[in-house]
């Protein structure tokens, strides 16, 4: 019983983190057909900038409460600055190129971002634990959990809901769906595709940075954290179905629970539980759980 509850909470907590870290990736892929390896770089940038800003702010001795504003603020700053520079400065010259080539482009950007973060913040770890501690703990069956973890689950739900609402219930969102459906036709209909691409990339980047920024208070921010996220996020969106927000949710829950179950019941399997789940899901549903049937080109 105790273990079952612990698996439930740990699984949800990990799933929330996975969703926040991978939803930007699936959004960008869905709209732009770019499998963005640099996403890991944005995650790292978000984590670094938020940990750095929290550290500076805490030195002033003010209330911790405002750090909860600081975290999303830094994510937005990173998303706007890095997202715009990379989209306008590099990616827009590459649109229409082969998907595989775009992976390589984003990998190159990732390498550059990795060293850029090192140049800006050095190689020493940054810790900014205050926001994670400030909300305190609650005990469930005698096991303490941080409230911050539950707040992250809430944030993940909120992000998912806002994205769903934005895509399906607003005019802009519906236009975006048209762009996803057929780029050329929507362009011919007078939709400003370029603008949609820029906006999507910035939003995707911001979401990636947000994933890092909210994680920063729980971890020690060190060089290399970006690389760890990429494969995990890829696994999540492939399981769910590439380019689908709902898929990212399902994928995150699958992977989150797979990991929690293995940690509690059979720890040695933790290392490859994610890949086992991915292989199993793909073996049954070759295009992920939430993929749409695709027309066959003859």
């Amino acid at each position: 019983m105790l273990t079952a509850v612990a698996i439930l909470i740990d699984g949800l907590g990990f799933a929330a983190w996975l969703f926040l870290s991978s939803v930007g990736l699936t959004l960008i892929y869905g709209v732009m057909r770019i499998l963005n390896i640099a996403h890991g770089g944005f995650y790292a940038l978000g984590a670094y900038s938020s940990a750095w800003a929290i550290g500076l702010y805490m030195q002033t001795g003010s209330s911790v409460a405002f750090t909860y504003l600081l975290i999303p603020l830094m994510a937005i700053v990173v998303g706007l600055v890095a997202g715009l520079i990379i989209e306008r400065g590099i990616l827009r010259f590459m649109y229409g190129r082969d998907e595989v080539l775009m992976v390589l482009v984003t990998y190159a950007i990732f390498l550059i971002l990795e060293d850029a973060t090192k140049l800006i913040w050095g190689t020493e770890s940054l810790v900014a634990y205050q926001p994670a501690y400030y909300l305190g703990n609650i005990e469930i069956f005698g096991i303490p959990y941080t409230v911050y973890k539950f707040a992250l689950i809430g944030l993940a739900v909120l992000c998912g809901a806002v994205l769903w609402w934005g895509l399906n219930r607003t005019t802009t969102g519906k236009l975006l769906l048209v762009v996803i459906e057929d780029r050329e036709v929507s362009s011919a209909l007078g939709i400003n595709v370029t603008l949609f691409f820029s906006a999507t990339f910035v939003i995707g980047t911001t979401l990636g940075a947000l994933g890092g920024a909210v994680t920063a208070p729980q971890i020690s921010v060190v060089p290399g954290i970006g690389a760890e996220v990429i494969v995990m996020a890829f696994a999540v969106i492939v399981i769910g179905g590439m380019g689908s927000i709902g898929g990212a949710i399902i994928g995150a829950i699958f992977v989150g629970f797979a990991r929690a179950v293995s940690v509690h019941l059979y720890p040695p399997a933790e290392l490859f539980s994610i890949y086992l789940v991915m292989a199993a899901v793909l073996a049954i549903k070759p295009y992920g759980l939430f993929s749409l049937a695709q027309g066959r080109k003859i």
């Binding site: 612990a6 698996i7 909470i9 740990d10 699984g11 907590g13 990990f14 983190w17 096991i143 959990y145 973890k149 994680t215 729980q218 971890i219 020690s220 290399g224 954290i225 760890e228 990991r259 929690a260 940690v263 509690h264 720890p267 040695p268 933790e270 290392l271």
Partner: peptide, 16 residues
């Protein structure tokens, strides 16, 4: 417990 190196998140392990 044997989490992956550089995992960074140990929520489940700590619960266990």
């Amino acid at each position: 417990q044997f989490p992956k190196v550089f995992a960074g998140q140990y929520g489940a392990e700590i619960s266990a």
